[in-house]
Design a protein around this nucleic acid. Structure first.
Lengths: 157, 157
DNA sequence: TAAATTACCATGATATACCATAAATATAAA
DNA sequence: TTTATATTTATGGTATATCATGGTAATTTA
């Protein structure tokens, strides 16, 4: 029995004409062990689909509940957007989910999906958009490297 | 039951045509006792593979989660880079992991891997790159020696 | 009843687990 | 210290299980 649940790695899977994609096996294992479900929604800031376990959204909801004025109005609005957009995606016996037209369109995904782990969350990109995004991030992080290294979370040497 | 968990020493192992390498026995012992798994990713700054226990990344994920910063751009970038690249590597009954083509290429490893302990983390180098790196480190330390000596005598005084 | 959605089966490719042997290290006896 | 024995560790090869994916049947719902 494992004790850590992290979405990791970058996995490329095919999307068929009905929007079916295999959720990476590692991701499925996490969902299964947590006894939770996958929830997906359109990213608010990027042309990609964002996903996490229902547990995480539950936690987010509780936090907002518990610390009303701690959160800015902006963040409250953002969470509203997410909960309004989010939807459960159960996978069948072969491990596939069916992504909706709305999500696929937002991420500009046609026949190939790139799953990118983000720890508690993950993202689904089109190959083209992900390539651009990865480049942008690398440049950005290299620029900020000195700052990151002094931080405790700078475990990425 | 031991209480310290440090990756130490330098170990040279062979990499076969499928990318299989024996994880040094000492490293395996740590992972086993922690009940965790090995996670590897490309170093952001060096031509080497970096590894740690999943526990360590889990801590990082928790910190991000608890920082009430669900929508921060910088964190988004960081998590993408770290977790998007990282991957779990479980070892079989003989103690081997299978390194991916991506990692081997980044570290320029062909048939020999050099494991270098770094405390909570470790690195995997090609023999050639490691030789250079070790030299660089030695030179760097020698440059700083006068400073180190002053500090030591200052404390004793 | 037609369209759409969901669940199930089949297959090839890939990755994983296992077995056997060789090398290295540690332990015990001389 | 030297030699012999036992134990752990590293590595080559192979069988097995898992996974992604195309196709189809069953079920829903409009």
């Amino acid at each position: 029995m494992r004790k850590t649940f992290l979405f990791m790695d970058t996995v490329i899977n095919k999307v068929d004409s009905k929007g079916r994609v295999s959720l990476p096996a590692d991701y499925r294992a996490i969902v299964k062990e947590l006894g939770s479900e996958i929830v997906c929604y359109r990213s608010l800031v990027s042309p990609c689909i964002e996903g996490c376990t229902e547990d995480l959204l539950e936690k987010l909801a509780s936090e907002i509940e518990d610390s009303n004025d701690f959160f800015s109005q902006t963040q409250d609005d953002l969470t509203n957007l997410i909960f309004g957009d989010a939807k459960r995606f159960t996978f069948d016996s072969t491990g596939r989910i069916v992504l909706s037209e709305k999500l696929l369109k937002h991420a500009q995904i046609k026949d190939t999906a790139v799953f990118v782990g983000k720890g508690r969350k993950f993202q689904i990109w089109s190959p083209e958009n992900w390539e651009k995004e990865e480049e942008r991030i690398r440049a950005e992080v290299m620029k900020k490297r000195p700052v990151l290294n002094t931080r405790k979370t700078g475990e990425n040497a």
